[in-house]
């Protein structure tokens, strides 16, 4: 619990610093680069677009952490590494806070920069292999 709070605090601090007129905030980047398909609430479009709700579950499985960066919407976006790391961290807490493990280490720019060099050419099969088929029921 304390660790989650600490992570959130560090994270929120990062957000506040970002909001002070420098790099684009995660919320802004989400709207401009993700919301068009993933919607304001991170919900699925059944049969077409997977949900962001529940993405925290990937953090609990081997290979899940890289997966969240290697999906094409993330790896091929024009958001620079540091903002992208912030964006993924923000997104996890925004849409899947309950699933984020207690010992979650926020993504760093270096890590994101590394994973995004290998965009996935196969997403569905890999996803199912990691956490099974996704539940398309809107929450």
């Amino acid at each position: 619990m304390v660790r989650i709070a600490l992570a959130l605090l560090t994270f929120a601090f990062g957000l506040a610093a970002a909001g002070a007129g420098s790099a684009a905030s995660p919320r802004f980047n989400y709207i401009l680069h993700c919301q068009g398909c993933h919607l304001a609430d991170g919900g699925a479009t059944p049969g077409k677009i997977p949900p962001l709700i529940g993405t925290g579950r990937f953090l609990a499985v081997e290979g899940g952490r890289e997966f969240l960066v290697r999906v094409p919407g993330v790896s091929l976006s024009i958001v620079p590494d540091d903002e992208l790391a912030e964006l993924i961290n923000w997104m996890l807490f925004r849409f899947s806070a309950d699933d984020v493990p207690a010992d979650f280490e926020p993504y760093t720019a270096e890590e994101v920069g590394r994973y995004r060099q290998e965009p996935l050419v196969e997403v569905e099969t890999v996803r199912v292999g990691l956490i099974g088929p996704y539940d398309e029921t809107p929450e």
Binding site: I31, L32, Q35, G36, C37, L39, T45, K48, I49
Partner: peptide
């Protein structure tokens, strides 16, 4: 449509 694209 819910799905769209967003610019500035």
């Amino acid at each position: 449509s819910a799905v769209t694209w967003i610019g500035t």
